[in-house]
Design a protein around this nucleic acid. Structure first.
Lengths: 203, 203
DNA sequence: CAGCATTGTTGGCACCGCCTACATTCGGGG
DNA sequence: CCCCGAATGTAGGCGGTGCCAACAATGCTG
């Protein structure tokens, strides 16, 4: 079937997979030029499509950003699950997880910012909330496991997870903000997890 | 001198204090409608001035944001210094500082985001870097003091400060992102500082 | 294969940031 | 004291944006 090229080298009227193309382009732009430089019209241009076409797939610029955040959560979730090795002893296990998180946050800084942006709340999108849960799950599992084995103090595991995650996110945020060199953040992971487990006070 | 009212109830040609007015308006808008809704033209309108007038005081929208960030650092610095009581024992002292930071970050969420935005780097503005140093100083002082008294493990105080600050910032970020209720963040401060000092492992 | 839902296109609206040319006012040196 | 340059504000225009409505092509399904 020789494809119905009318006469010109015209693309088919329907793009075929605009939604994915837009998301991919958006992520590339995000990485290369930052959130601020993201424009629906520009994306449409790159995709070789009219400026209103994106509107068929995302009612809003914000809708696209939300979808992008979702992609981010999926990818982060995968990275974390892939990095978790339940056979490792607690400290090493946590370190691996932390390193994975920091690595992701360093080379997806803009995307991560989007994921944390407090703008989805109105509708919450539910899908997004689920994605967050899945992501947090990896960490929570480690904490809960360690608690059962008595390797971690008692207390609401959700709360402990929160604090642990917060510390991670804080480091990531500093790295993203330039207060901490990315390599320093990665290299320091081990020491930092040690600190988290043993505290600042001398034993 | 009866003021040269030409005939109308016209404001004086020169506003008198446009720069401050703009900054104040910007902060209000930031708080009420978020960063995205901030427009130079709108600010000009609110100040009763033409749309190009702000350009005389801020070469750029980014320049205004930088100035705003500076204001934020000043205010945060004051809050922290005001909250630090060197006579308190370590844990209470840290808790007070942490609570001050969390309180600030909760009711200046948008402003804080601006302060952390990694967009000043090109010129760094120097003034801004100094402001950051001053802010971090409060925390670093506490850590260093405690170290001298042997209440905190040895190690580069700057590094320990960084980790401590990161944890703080992480909690703040979670509170801002809605993953943690603001009151919960504030109420949990004490417990959280305890965790930071004693670690997750049982003693 | 007819008709309807989906997906794109064109054009227009209001707004934005930034620029340039021009107007007014202020303040300091002759 | 006054005059002229520096600061500050104004008017208008340019290219860009997001969003919307009306219309066109296509795909799918009964």
């Amino acid at each position: 079937m020789p494809a119905s090229r009318p006469t010109q080298e015209s693309r088919p009227y329907h793009h075929g997979d605009l939604r994915s193309t837009l998301l991919a382009g958006a992520e590339r732009t995000l990485r290369e030029k930052g959130t601020g430089a993201l424009s629906l019209r520009e994306l449409a241009r790159e995709a070789g499509v009219s400026h209103a076409a994106p509107g068929r797939h995302f009612k809003d610029k914000q809708a696209l950003l939300n979808a992008l955040a979702l992609v981010g959560y999926d990818r982060l979730g995968q990275a974390l699950e892939g990095a978790d090795d339940p056979t490792l002893p607690l400290e090493k296990r946590l370190t691996a997880l932390a390193r994975a998180y920091l690595a992701f946050s360093i080379d997806n800084a803009e995307l991560l910012e989007l994921m944390y942006a407090r703008k989805h709340e109105p509708d919450a999108s539910e899908q997004l909330a689920a994605a967050v849960d899945r992501t947090v799950g990896s960490l929570e599992r480690v904490i809960a496991d360690a608690q059962e084995r008595g390797e971690i103090i008692a207390g609401d595991p959700q709360y402990l997870t929160l604090v642990t995650g917060a510390t991670l996110q804080g480091i990531a945020s500093f790295a993203a903000g330039g207060m901490l060199a990315p390599e320093a953040a990665l290299d320091g992971t081990e020491e930092f997890v040690h600190l988290l487990l043993h505290g600042l006070k001398p034993r």
